[in-house]
């Protein structure tokens, strides 16, 4: 009898599936003391393109699903993550995290927090407008569409969830780029895959920031971009590329976002509707 362990193959998460990168490239992941941990996929621009295609397909149905269901699903993610917290703690620690327990707890707390916003931010950000004519006039937030999300570089689970959750609960689909502790990002994808998040609504790529961030900003079928970065040159480059289709850009510091409904609002469009009032 052999006791040899069975290491996991870390792949990408696109359209609810776990494909290898089409480029065949890998990122060698080593632990704190230099020990080999795994070969992760190094996503290419084509992987990103494929992810945007499935994101676009998934966006409509996710946007239309009820707020109640969205809340249920976010809470479900928290539940599944909580059930596997020891695995995440171990994995994060192996990748060099010194506060893995707090990190996982923080991620779970954020998921629960945003789950609760699913059916409340609309009321907060809507208005009935008292126009000076016989019309009923109201403004409501609607999801922006497909979002490119660049998670904080430290790779913490809290950081990943802090950017994913407001975009997700707002009814958008997204492609997330993670760097840093990318093994737990892919393990987190497994959590998403078993939490009733519809395929394609969240896609996670592991790869090199300088290679993929420009692509995230350039793609014409991406409606908005969330970038956590402290690099002024990177931010400027992203803004310049985003101008081409007037992507909405939310620039954030390179760390986990503190919870706020205004992060949800960053990925909403306000639609105003007019209708006459008469008999």
């Amino acid at each position: 009898m052999s006791n040899l362990s069975i290491p996991k193959t870390y792949k990408l998460f696109i359209g609810g599936k776990f494909p290898r990168t089409e480029s065949g490239r890998i990122l060698e992941i080593r632990g704190a003391k230099g020990a080999f941990l795994a070969n992760a996929s190094r996503a290419s621009r084509k992987d990103f393109r494929n992810a945007v295609v499935v994101s676009r397909k998934a966006a409509g149905a996710w946007a239309k699903s009820t707020a109640y269901l969205k809340g249920q699903i976010l809470y479900r993610i928290a539940e599944v993550l909580a059930g596997r917290s020891s695995q995440f703690e171990a994995e994060l620690t192996a990748q060099g995290s010194s506060n893995a327990e707090a990190d996982v707890a923080g991620a779970i707390a954020l998921l629960v927090h945003y789950a609760g916003w699913s059916d409340k931010y609309q009321a907060l950000f809507s208005s009935v407008n008292p126009v000076a004519s016989p019309h009923f006039n109201f403004s409501v937030p609607e999801p922006t569409g497909v979002v490119s999300t660049v998670a904080p570089a430290d790779g913490s689970l809290t950081g990943l969830v802090s950017v994913m959750a407001p975009v997700l609960v707002g009814g958008n689909s997204q492609v997330i780029l993670t760097s840093g502790k990318i093994l737990s990002a892919i393990s987190f994808a497994e959590v998403l895959a078993t939490s009733d998040v519809p395929a394609g609504v969240v896609n996670i790529l592991t790869g090199m920031r300088d290679e993929l961030v420009p692509e995230f900003a350039k793609h014409m079928d991406v409606n908005a971009l969330l970038l956590c970065s402290d690099d002024d040159a990177e931010k400027k480059a992203v803004e310049l590329e985003a101008a081409e289709n007037l992507k909405r850009v939310s620039l954030q510091a390179d760390k986990a976002l503190s919870p706020s409904p205004y992060h949800i609002l960053d990925f909403q469009e306000i639609k105003t509707t007019w209708h006459p009032v008469g008999v």
């Binding site: 004519s133 016989p134 019309h135 006459p276 009032v277 008469g278 008999v279």
Partner: peptide, 8 residues
């Protein structure tokens, strides 16, 4: 059909 506001 007639829309009241429109016709007024």
């Amino acid at each position: 059909v007639i829309d009241q506001v429109g016709v007024e």
